[in-house]
Amino acid sequence: MLKIENLSKAYGDKKIKAVDNISLEVKPGEIFGFMGPNGAGKTTTIKMIVGLLKADSGKITINGIDNQKNIMEAKKQFSYVPDTPVLFDKIKAIEYLKFMADVYGVSVQDRERVFEEYTDLFEIKKAINDPIGSFSHGMKQKLALVGALLHDPELFILDEPMVGLDPKSSFELKRIMRERCDQGKSVFFSTHVLEVAEKLCDRIAIIKNGQIIEVGSMDQLRAQAGSQESLEEIFLELTES
């Protein structure tokens, strides 16, 4: 579903390599967790996948489509929710959702069904006619999630999705992520909440100083570590060594 090959990105005078020759693959039906300390290169990687940053070298394929050669087709395959969802403050929530439905070409039937389902689930229906500027961080996050789910993407990319969400919405989001993967779609997300990653992810990649230092399922990570440690202990061992 998502294939990253030898991806690199440096900032400034190319002295600081934010992402250094990384490769990984997210399979269909998989929830893939992407973890690492602050400044490790998670957000830079995600921004290159979604087209917000241009890679210095390497290749990214989304559902078999090269995101640098066939940009429009690649964009149709995924939806993205950033860590801080800055949306148009003066626009009403319903106008934002309509805009998202229009640009992704969602059919009339689908937009009504998905709208009703997710605005109920995330409890934002009452505020749907309010300007986004009046929303709290969590409300904006929920609206961005509904907007991202409208076109039923093959790949769901989220950067720190649980930050700002209330416990119920957080629970619902995890359920949606699992449901999508059961349908053969994929989820790629970054998080610092290790308990969530441990329980939810089929596979996990740990990035440090721009390089992937470990990839695998929880069992594989434990086997590598040679003990029945928690993800937290494995993470700390790997990132502090």
């Binding site: 979604v50 087209g51 917000l52 429009m72 964009k75 993205y80 949306l87 148009f88 998202m100 992704y104």
Partner: peptide, 8 residues
């Protein structure tokens, strides 16, 4: 960021 992510 939205403008750069949407398929338009």
């Amino acid at each position: 960021w939205m403008t750069r992510v949407i398929p338009v």
